[in-house]
Amino acid sequence: MVEPNCPVTAACHLAVTRAYSALKEAGADERVAYEAAETVYAWHHPEVPRQRVPFVIADWLP
């Protein structure tokens, strides 16, 4: 899912997927890793309502 007024940037996508996978590899709980990925996305896209963020990044993460 892509927000209509929020073009996905390579940097954002990379940072989100990297944060998630790095935390998982470090043994972090799934919810902790997912929340971290949400925070990273929200930093790149503060214009996207926070409640929508987990649904947006769901298409990027395994």
């Binding site: 940097a11 940072a15 790095a22 470090a26 925070t39």
Partner: peptide, 9 residues
Amino acid sequence: MIDVQSGEV
């Protein structure tokens, strides 16, 4: 510590 720019942990 998470780098929000790069995703580095």
